[in-house]
Design a protein around this nucleic acid. Structure first.
Lengths: 339, 339
DNA sequence: TTGAAAGCGATACCAT
DNA sequence: ATGGTATCGCTTTCAA
């Protein structure tokens, strides 16, 4: 592999000049620039990014931590980030945190040790304090789907409360008045916010909330099944169900079908996230779109702007969710009621 | 950040000795080792991986190219690779190739420019020749899901022919004799191999293949719908359908339902890949398991063994698929036949 | 506009 | 077992 030395020799200029050409410095005459470029071309020169990093103290790499690499959610996010970064010539180093504190910290330290210029984090288990402390260090971080007031400018979030509101309002507008709710783990802020939106819609429509029609799951589909059983076993009547995410909705639908319910006629269901699978389950799931790909993109832009000085970029910190109407929620029809 | 200089000063030893301690060289006395470790601890020393890379000419990073970061397939693979690599302290740089030649080449060059120690490639559009030429360079490559005879030792593949055979045999064993087939793009070797397996099973059971019951899709679900329509419109009777992948099976099922077919009673269907979504679609899809996560792991192991000298690792180049029985394929029952 | 030279923070060879 | 030192390939003052 050719080095900068050979280029400088062939072009008959100094190292410094070659370096200037590579970095598009304006302080180099057109004639020398041409000479140097020709020499590079002739030698098939490619700068050694490691040496560049060492000398410039910037690695041109951004570290990403997600909970899992697989699964229906993170892929979209990674995709958005990778796109944006590669277009800017930055590379992306990825680690998984498995929603487990020790593992998340381990992942973050791993990324730090690879001298990333910035970190994009989707963490769940690690404490606010840890993140605040981390942000005080010299390595910039941006948080996806986590809001910490002290770090507000570094957070890219979804308006979960609005999403919860939209989901429930849709059912109320369709005439439903007996609604059940399957929540996510209520210690997670997104689960809490979505439920708050639900309550706001209920209040707006003057519908009383029945605590017996509330069940708390863990965002996995198995918990959706479990919660659905619990709700059905309660013997209480309900004509609609809102689930705090699509995976639990999938589990709930599965169970409802096993119990012989006719969907959506006997029970309307709405989910949250708009995963790909929402289109595959039957009936197709009405849900709330979570633009996670866009949010990943935005996180990458945050880094480009704040770390790599791309001043023209415009940032947006909070995203608004939107209702996606499919088949699983329909007008309340008393004729079909059995429960 | 503390450097090796400060450690050597504080510990009262030379640079070389500190380096030896970091690299677990046996040529260091226990007492000095302890001294050095203490100094590191005290300074909170973390080696600068970039400097290490420059000096050692190894970046400890492996480049991965997949078609897409999102989608139901690559996540599993990335997950397997990341796991294995991180455990070995190697990091993973990821790029997407979008199943498009220019983009794949661009991605590969991007990874090369980041001085990876090896590349793990899941490429579709790039030619065999390109890959053979690439492999002749000094940067080692591993191919997932692509078999090139000249590069056999670098290929991690699935026995697609066997998978195709198993899928079809399952239906034949259940008594079906009128089988339709929705293939992937026949220029892709996996699509071709799966179909070859289908033909072998048909031959084994002495069932004549009706070319009118063959349709070629593109592995996307929309093409599954299209092919299904085409097959139904042909007016020919068939009691079972094998799809060359799960996504097309999902599309086919969707269309079958719209046409009022009762599944699986009137039509048995088997897919291929065992995506997560196979469990979510209704009826739950009988399919062929594609252990892509394991294969990703194995690709990572290949790199650990061949590039990072972890001699004890055992490699395996071809994986065997297995049948996963769910609800979408059932015994042929003439009573339900309408088509 | 161009060049000389001092780092960047490690590794690894050669001595001792 | 330990130390001295050249080296990796580039960036970045500082002078000219």
């Amino acid at each position: 592999m050719a080095t900068i030395y050979q280029v400088s020799e062939l072009a008959g200029v100094s190292l410094a000049t070659v370096s200037r050409v590579m970095n598009n410095s304006p302080r180099v005459s057109d004639t020398t620039r041409t000479k140097v470029l020709a020499a590079m071309e002739q030698l098939g020169y490619r700068p050694n990014s490691i040496a560049q990093s060492l000398a410039s103290n910037r690695s041109n790499s951004v570290g990403i931590l997600v909970s899992e690499l697989h699964g229906p959610f993170y892929g979209e996010m990674l995709s958005g980030i990778e796109n944006e970064c590669r277009a800017a010539g930055k590379h992306v180093i990825i680690a998984a945190g498995h929603s487990e504190e020790a593992s998340e910290i381990d992942g973050i330290e791993f990324l730090i040790s690879r001298s990333c210029d910035a970190l994009i984090l989707h963490v769940e288990a690690v404490s606010d304090d840890y993140l605040i402390k981390l942000a005080e260090g010299k390595l910039p971080i941006v948080l996806i789907n986590r809001y910490i007031p002290q770090l507000a400018a570094n957070c890219i979030c979804l308006n979960n409360e609005l999403g919860g509101y939209l989901a429930t309002r849709q059912l109320l507008q369709q005439g439903h008045r007996q609604l059940a709710y399957i929540a996510g783990p209520m210690w997670k802020s997104d689960a809490k916010d979505r439920y708050a939106g639900h309550l706001r819609a209920m209040a707006e429509y003057g519908v009383k909330v029945n605590p017996a029609l509330f069940a708390e799951g863990d965002f996995q589909d198995s918990s959706g099944s479990r919660c659905m059983q619990q709700l059905l076993d309660s013997g209480l009547a309900f004509t609609a169900l809102v689930c705090a995410n699509d995976e639990m909705a999938a589990g709930a639908i599965e169970t409802a079908r096993q119990r012989g319910l006719n969907l959506p006629q006997q029970l309307s269901i709405v989910g949250f996230d708009n995963l790909i699978l929402a289109r595959y389950i039957h009936p197709k799931l009405t849900t709330i779109d979570y633009p996670i790909g866009e949010m990943g993109r935005m996180a990458a832009r945050w880094v480009l702007k704040n770390i790599y000085q791309q001043q023209t970029i415009r940032l947006k910190n909070v995203f608004e969710p939107a209702l996606i109407c499919r088949e699983s929620a329909c007008h309340f029809d008393a004729a079909n009621q059995t429960a």
